[in-house]
Amino acid sequence: MSGGRSLNQIMDNKDVQRAVTRIAHEIIERNKGAQNLVIVGIRARGDYLAARIAQVIEGIEEVNIPVGVIDITLYRDDLQVVLEQPVVHKTEIPFDIGGRVVILVDDVLNTGRTIRAALDQLVDFGRPRSVQLAVLVDRGHRELPIRADYVGKNVPTSQGQRVTVKVQEVDGSDEVTVEEEPS
């Protein structure tokens, strides 16, 4: 983090926790329970949020929720355009998603291109009954017709800003910040 940027925290530890808990409740309410649910998080932050949402749902409904992780790198539409090749990590969906309701979880919803890639990858693993999308932050600027079913916080931003989500498991604490991109 170089100097001269203004940091602006929009969610702290507690806010993130509350948002996760609320999203978990909404998922149960919308699906009338958790019988047929599986949760899949998108690397590399959505996977931790996915595990937490699953944990809350399991606590309430007393069922076991399968949790998977996907890495969308190989499905990106800009692989041949980006300058620096991203490191490919493992996709782990060790269960059948055919006929299940898949809750896809990501940290930030922006252009929608990540979600497009994740959906493409998901259907390579089977034919889910439906796919619902949960995100911690929706910042707008969609470039594809994609919307979230569950949103932690709507954050209107300009395209010159950067939204950063930190999670306890990797970064030591939960936090969402918006900062000005240095021009």
Binding site: D71, T73, L74, Y75, L79, Q80, V87, V88, H89, K90, T91, E92, D120, Q121, D124, F125, G126
Partner: peptide, 25 residues
């Protein structure tokens, strides 16, 4: 880097549909 990437790719070989669009074109 080559070994790490290969380890990630190995999972694709176990999928029901063993193909990803990474090198399309």
């Amino acid at each position: 880097l080559m070994l790490d990437t290969a380890a990630s790719f190995k999972e694709i070989l176990e999928r029901p549909i063993k193909i990803v669009p990474a090198l399309r074109g």
